[in-house]
C-alpha cells in the first residue's frame, strides 16, 4: 500500500505535476495524477487519473462520474473509464478521464478543465468529494501575421490532401510462397514414396516397376510371348528385391527374409510354378491357364503395395 502511494507520487513527478492528495471527512482519500500543465496544441489529449479509496461499506456512485461528450465549445471528454478492486476492507477506484482540447489559441493561453463532484454512498447517507479544476497552457501552431514574402491567400491555405495508400501485400506473398514451396516438397515426397514420375525408374521398388510395366503394356503382353515377358519382368523384380537370383526352390527363404510379402506366399508359389511350366516345360498355354495375365497383374500390384508399405 505504502509502495503504491510512493509510486503514485513518483509517477506524478515524472508526469510533470505533483500528485494531489485530498483526505476528506470519513476514511476515503483521493489521489489525482495530473498530466503536465503546459505545452498543448489544438487537438491534443490530456489524461487525468483519479484514485479514490473508500471506507468499509461505502461505494462510489457511478452516476456521478462524468460522461464522455462535449463539455463546452472547445473541450471534450473523450473517454471515461473506471476500474475497482478490493483494498483492505474498502474499495480502490481508479478513474481515468481523457480530455481533448479543440481550442485554437492566438497566443499561449491558460485554459481550465472544470472540476466536478464525485458522490460516495453508504447504507445511511451520501457524501461528496470535490475534484479540483485543472489549468493548462495551450499554444498556437501557426504564426499570427503572414510574412511580407507570403501571398495574401496564405492565411487560408490548407495543408495538402492525404494520399490514400496502397494495400500491403507482403504477408499474402510470403504465405503464398511458403505454402507453394511446402506443397511442391510434399508432392515430390509423395512421388518419391509412391515411385511416381519422375521417380518411377527407381531400382529400390522393383515390384512397383513390374506392376506398372504389366499394367501399362497389358495389350502387347496378351500373347504367349508377352506372357513370358511379363513373367521375366516379375522374376527380375524378385531378383532385385532379394539381391540375388530367386528360383522356385528359394521362395520359402525369400518369404522368410521379406515377411512383407508373406501374405501373398501362395500366389508367389503359383507364379513360380507357372513360370517353370512356361520356360522349362514349354507349356505356355497351360501356364497361362493356371495363372492368366490379369492374375499376374494383380499379384504384382499387391507386391508393389507391400513393398511400399515396408519402405
Amino acid at each position: 500500500m505504502r509502495l503504491m502511494l510512493l509510486l503514485c507520487v513518483v509517477f506524478g513527478f515524472a508526469a510533470g505535476a505533483g500528485a494531489q492528495s485530498v483526505t476528506p471527512s470519513g476514511t476515503s482519500s483521493l489521489t489525482v495524477v495530473e498530466p503536465r500543465a503546459f505545452g498543448y496544441f489544438i487537438g491534443d489529449k490530456l489524461e487525468r487519473v483519479f484514485e479514490l479509496r473508500t471506507g468499509p461499506g461505502e461505494e462510489l456512485d457511478l452516476s456521478s462520474i462524468p460522461r464522455p461528450g462535449p463539455l463546452n465549445y472547445w473541450l471534450e471528454l473523450a473517454s471515461s473509464n473506471v476500474e475497482s478492486e478490493a483494498d483492505g476492507d474498502g474499495t480502490l477506484y481508479k478513474l481515468t478521464l481523457v480530455y481533448q482540447t479543440f481550442y485554437a489559441p492566438l497566443d499561449p493561453r491558460k485554459l481550465t478543465i472544470p472540476g466536478f463532484t464525485l458522490t460516495i454512498k453508504n447504507a445511511q447517507a451520501t457524501r461528496e468529494v470535490q475534484v479540483r479544476d485543472f489549468g493548462f497552457i495551450t499554444s498556437p501552431i501557426r504564426q499570427l501575421f503572414a510574412a511580407a514574402s507570403q501571398s495574401s491567400g496564405s492565411a487560408v491555405e490548407v495543408q495538402p490532401d492525404a494520399v490514400a495508400p496502397r494495400l500491403v501485400t507482403g504477408t499474402e506473398r510470403t504465405a503464398l510462397l511458403i505454402s507453394t514451396a511446402t506443397a511442391l516438397l510434399s508432392l515430390v515426397g509423395l512421388a518419391w514414396h509412391n515411385a511416381w514420375w519422375p521417380f518411377h525408374k527407381r531400382p529400390q521398388r522393383p515390384f512397383t516397376d513390374a506392376a506398372r510395366f504389366i499394367r501399362s503394356n497389358a495389350e502387347t503382353l496378351s500373347g504367349p510371348r508377352g506372357y513370358r515377358a511379363a513373367l521375366l519382368k516379375l522374376h527380375r523384380a524378385f531378383d532385385l528385391a532379394a539381391g540375388r537370383r530367386v528360383l522356385a526352390d528359394d521362395v520359402a527363404q525369400f518369404l522368410s527374409e521379406h515377411p512383407e510379402f508373406a501374405p501373398y506366399g501362395d500366389e508367389v508359389r503359383k507364379l513360380f510354378a507357372s513360370s517353370r511350366r512356361a520356360f522349362f516345360a514349354n507349356e505356355v498355354e497351360q501356364a497361362r491357364a493356371q495363372m492368366p495375365l490379369p492374375a499376374l497383374a494383380e499379384l504384382s500390384q499387391h507386391l508393389s503395395v507391400a513393398e511400399r508399405r515396408a519402405a
Binding site: 496544441f41 489544438i42 487537438g43 479543440f102 485554437a104 498556437p140 501552431i141 501557426r142 492565411a155 487560408v156 491555405e157 490548407v158 495543408q159 495538402p160 492525404a162
Partner: peptide, 10 residues
C-alpha cells in the same frame, strides 16, 4: 495528426 491540427486552426 499535424496536418489536421493545422487545417483546423486555419
Amino acid at each position: 495528426n499535424w496536418d489536421a491540427k493545422y487545417n483546423l486552426d486555419v
